[in-house]
Write a protein that binds this DNA or RNA. Structure first.
Length: 503
DNA sequence: TCTGGGGTCCTCACCCTC
DNA sequence: TCTGGAGGGTGAGGACCC
């Protein structure tokens, strides 16, 4: 029996760029590129207009600017994207409790589990209604794929893009997949694609013909078996609503390579603090600390250390990261540093310590209450507190040090939370306005920064739903100009108001 | 003007224990 | 007592995804 095509894959079209176009009416129909604007930035998303110039995600910004010199280049506004994503995910959850978000703009939905679809016809209806609902709620277009498995639903939505819907009828999978490039399949990236190409395998049909044994020989057990099954259109992975995070990390690429060892150490400490901040926000602690270093030549290495128990203590993570850094040669320069924590838990070593102390205290109290002078002491060592002597860590630099009893609960006061730059008092600095960011002017109202430089900032005054607005230029320190929060794309009560023409 | 950030999963090597 | 193999934990790196 074949599975009914009731797995839905939703993919918002050019999400970040589309949100920017919806929020900035003057950019509709124009090439919009969202990404890092620094000297080492890359493209996160390009609008379909920009893609016509050859711009695509993960491309270096400098290259994008050469290909599309007249595009609008904007920094990402994640808070707005997250808000829009929440609206979309809520619509999906009305269809089924089994919604598996993959990112802000993508998700799988098991329609059958939600009772909203049971065959091709009802699935198509649901998909069309969903696209209409998303458009009404956000003003954005989405593509929908429907099939009997996650892999095929994703292939379908990819084929449906942009702004389309495609259902893969059960029984037609193999014929549909056969002529497609191997790169269509999830898990086949540039390296595997090239590996297969050298063996004369370029299409999904070639993969199926090669056979499982050959694929396992070429790309390894897990990957080979998976590829072969996908080539046959087989995929029985379930839609999973809740996934536990497995790691938390932060990293920074520097505009220019760092050479100064002291500066590098300081950056690692800052990253460790940021990482712990994120770790705590997510309600986790972790046992393995990972330091990532990308050197001047783009070679990347990681060093890790596993502690005896999970921690969310900034001092412990900082010390571990510092120890790991000591073992890394940074001569020549460092372009990226990162600190991460894996082996996540929802308790800490300190919790266990506190538990064992409480258990001991209770045992002592009980013993005292009994006051039978025998004094056998607490019988059982609480297993959380019992620590085997050797850490068994081979090789490494001195073995993992203990999670410093000295930095107990509460953590050190000097740990800066968040990303703030070194907390020295600085003289008043020229205000900086990032392209694409939201502003509010006392006279002209809401707008966004189109560009800035030589002491001037250019602002376009428009809002979602308004006609394209006018551009005005101000001094960067104009007191009437303030940064502001993004406006909602749909349902902004002020949208009816005209944008002031003259001031 | 080369190549972000935050993840997941897999593989391999090495060491240790049973 | 010695030896070999299985299997787990750890550390490092690579590929991939959005």
């Amino acid at each position: 029996m074949r599975a009914a095509p009731t797995i839905l894959h939703l993919d918002m079209d050019a999400f970040y760029a589309s949100v920017e176009q919806a929020s900035k009416p003057s950019l509709r129909g124009k090439a919009v590129i969202v990404g890092g604007l620094g000297p080492r930035g890359v493209v996160a998303t390009a609008s379909y207009e920009a893609r016509r110039f050859g711009v695509h995600s993960a491309m270096p910004m400098a290259q994008a600017r050469r290909l599309c010199p007249n595009g609008a280049y904007l920094i990402p506004r994640f808070s707005l994207y997250r808000a829009v994503s929440d609206v979309v995910m809520a619509l999906l959850r009305q269809l089924s409790p089994l919604v598996e978000p993959l990112s802000l703009d993508e998700a799988f939905v098991d329609l059958e589990a939600g009772g909203t679809a049971f065959d091709a016809e009802s699935a198509l209806e649901t998909g069309q209604r969903l696209r209409a609902d998303i458009l009404a709620a956000t003003g954005l277009s989405a593509s929908v794929g429907l099939a009997g498995s996650k892999m095929l639903a994703k292939v379908a939505s990819e084929e449906a893009k942009p702004d389309g819907l495609l259902l893969i009828e059960p029984g037609t999978e193999r014929a549909l997949l056969a002529p497609m490039s191997v790169r269509t399949l999830p898990g086949v990236g540039p390296a595997t694609g090239e590996h297969l190409r050298r063996a004369g395998i370029t299409t999904v049909g070639d993969l199926a013909e090669a056979g499982e044994d050959e694929l396992v020989r070429m790309v390894g057990r897990a990957h080979g078996v998976g590829l072969y099954r996908m080539a046959l259109g087989l995929d029985d992975r379930a839609v999973v609503a809740e996934r536990d995070a497995k790691s938390v990390s932060v990293e920074d690429t520097f505009d220019v390579d760092l050479h100064d060892r002291v500066r590098i150490r300081n950056e690692v400490q800052r990253l460790a603090d940021r990482c712990v901040h994120r770790l705590r926000e997510s309600g986790h602690s972790g046992r393995t600390i990972v330091l990532k270093v990308r050197r001047y030549d783009f070679s990347t290495l990681t060093r890790s250390e596993t502690l005896r128990g999970p921690t969310d203590d900034p001092a412990v993570v900082r010390e571990a990261a510092a120890r790991l850094l000591e073992a890394v040669d940074t001569t020549g320069g460092v372009r990226l540093l990162g600190v991460g924590v894996t082996g996540l838990a929802d308790y800490t070593q300190e919790d266990l310590f506190a538990q064992s102390m409480a258990a001991e205290a209770a045992a002592e109290a009980a013993a005292e209450a009994a006051t039978a002078g025998g004094g056998g002491g607490p019988a059982a060592e609480p297993d959380g507190a019992a620590e085997a002597g050797g850490t068994g860590g081979a090789g490494g630099s001195g073995g993992p040090a203990e999670p410093t009893g000295s930095t107990g609960p509460g953590g050190p006061a000097e740990a800066p939370e968040g990303t703030g730059s070194a907390g020295e008092a600085e003289p008043a600095r020229e205000r900086r306005w990032a392209a694409g960011s939201d502003v509010q002017h006392a006279v002209y109202g809401p707008g966004w920064v189109q560009g800035s430089g030589v002491g001037r900032v250019t602002v376009r005054f428009e809002r979602p739903g308004s006609p394209p607005g006018r551009v005005r230029t101000f001094r960067v320190d104009d007191p009437e100009l303030e940064p502001s929060d993004p406006l909602p794309l749909v349902g902004d009560p002020a949208v009816g108001e005209p944008v002031p023409e003259e001031g």
